[in-house]
Amino acid sequence: MKLKSSYIVVAVLSVIAIAFPAFLGAYPLNVARSIMTYMALAISWDMLLRSGQISFGIAGLFGLGSYASALAVLRGGMDPMLSIVFAAAFAGVMAYALGFAILRLRSMYFSITTLALMEIFRIVMHNLHDFSGGPEGVVLPSVIFKGASPALYWLCLAGLFLTIGVSWFFEKSKMHLALTAIRNDETSARSSGVNIFNYLLIAFVITSVLQGMMGAIQVQSYGFTTPDTAFDANFTLLPLAMALLGGIHSTIGPMAGAVLLGVASEWLKLKIPYGHLVVYGIIIILVILFMPQGLFGLARKARRERSKAGASHE
């Protein structure tokens, strides 16, 4: 019974999300798109985090995806829609190749290496003047769908739905058990027969595909990119803060965090043009110190305590 009602809620929410362009103008749709992009990145970051591996390289794969897509259109004459698929696949292949090396690392070494990889991608794009346009970046001949904002919105929404779907699948399938086991205790996971490296590789490749795809969607909807926008540290920082605030190790937590912080930052951007990101830094600190489980973790705890109290009353 409970399951059914939650399905109805999901269906209603998706219909509302799909219908947004009917009653919103171009500016709110633009804001919604940026929030959805960050949301998808936050969810994908969290998917890898469920295995205990913390990546600081979201922006790296995001940027890689946007460059792969832009260059496929510009140099290879690929169809824009197809180039998004290509970019996602490219990010996946890169992640697969890199994964063999970096997934053997743990904790801070993994994090720092992902951060360094992101910088390497950025510098490579900066320096390959003839191929990637160097610091000036690339400009596409036209924006996908001729820049019609409802269509761009739906494209971004499709990317987000795919991400949510994959994340939901991760939560419900064997992946969830495997990743949680790895996070909790690698040695005991291994001795229970979990193939740690394989699961990590699958998770890393899938999250990279999603991040690359979002990067491609972003570049196709704006029509240009530069090394500094594609590999902007904000694409690492914001998703991280959103996932932490909402509550990690879940799909719904990063989503809630993205909506809250996305709307808040849009408002703050107008109020404080310089340095409004300080709020993100402070949120990260406060969340880590006072509620490491995030808002949803708190809610879950409160509900559990209430049900416990109710049980003792009976």
Binding site: L237, L244, I284
Partner: peptide
């Protein structure tokens, strides 16, 4: 706390200091 939390915490500190200077 777990190492991850420390890493994210100091990352948050770094962002706060940079953005404060920006502000």
């Amino acid at each position: 706390a777990p190492e991850l939390n420390q890493l994210i915490l100091t990352f948050g500190l770094a962002i706060s200091l940079t953005q404060l200077a920006n502000l």
